[in-house]
Design a protein around this nucleic acid. Structure first.
Lengths: 132, 132
DNA sequence: TTTTTATTGCAACATTGTTGCATTATTAAA
DNA sequence: TTTAATAATGCAACAATGTTGCAATAAAAA
């Protein structure tokens, strides 16, 4: 039987940080924004819980660090993974892009269950004119 | 000025392990196969060096662990990242697939420099008949 | 053979994440 | 409202992965 979840101040605090964010946040980002209000472990557990609930998207950067963004088109059963994530090598932010991802058919015998695609480069704020 | 690289027994040992592999290997895999012949740090440094030389592909798994595979169609200037990587959730191997990756145009203002795409699911050995 | 310096091994440290457990706070029940 | 059950929290300790500094070693060049 599944544990019943509780709606705590602590979770609301983490959620408020995630809602304000305009890019995917890592544990460190969240901890800093809450500057000592919550224990590190608690933040880890809340993020994990939100992911289990299908509320959060988890994105692993090239460096192996986890980043989290609120799901917008996800259901509990299936995450809407078929969009791109973009890692800006200048400002170091990770964004969800609406651009669809097209994958050629896999070789015979392979069965896909999830897709994660991370493009790195320069984001809108850091590309072109801004860089010169 | 660039350091001149040396061709050591140690590097040859690591390379021989990579050459035998039919999937991308992580540090731990290599260390185990060499069972104590090399120091952990040395292996880390050699892998890093091979990546810098453009000899090795580095693939970060969803869990954040680094895996390495020999480059087949890469040049020093540009890695042939435009292929897929596949993580089997059954045997836990990571493979390079030849299937091409097609990405819809990015939103205006974004400049891509590298792409990394990891699909997870069941590989040829673990899918279909094998699982029932 | 000698010299130069890249490479190696060791110890220590850094970062990211997890587990166990006593305490606290939320929810449900009385 | 009060009490009981248990999910959530904080703390300490641990685990996995990766990095840095430095003295000793070995590869390549002179």
């Amino acid at each position: 039987m599944e544990k019943k979840k509780r709606n705590t101040k602590t979770k609301q605090l983490v959620m408020s940080v995630l809602e304000k964010a305009n890019a995917a946040l890592c544990h460190e980002d969240i901890e800093k924004q809450l500057s000592g209000q919550l224990d590190r472990v608690t933040i880890y557990r809340i993020l994990q819980g939100f992911c289990d609930d299908g509320i959060l998207h988890k994105i692993t950067s090239e460096s192996g660090k986890s980043h989290y963004a609120l799901c917008h088109n996800c259901s509990l059963e299936k995450h809407n993974d078929e969009h791109l994530h973009f890692h800006c090598i200048c400002c170091d932010n990770i964004f969800c892009l609406e651009a669809p991802l097209v994958i050629a058919p896999l070789p015979a015998g392979y069965e896909a269950r999830a897709v994660s695609c991370l493009i790195s480069g320069y984001c809108r704020d850091c590309s072109g004119a801004s860089r010169g």
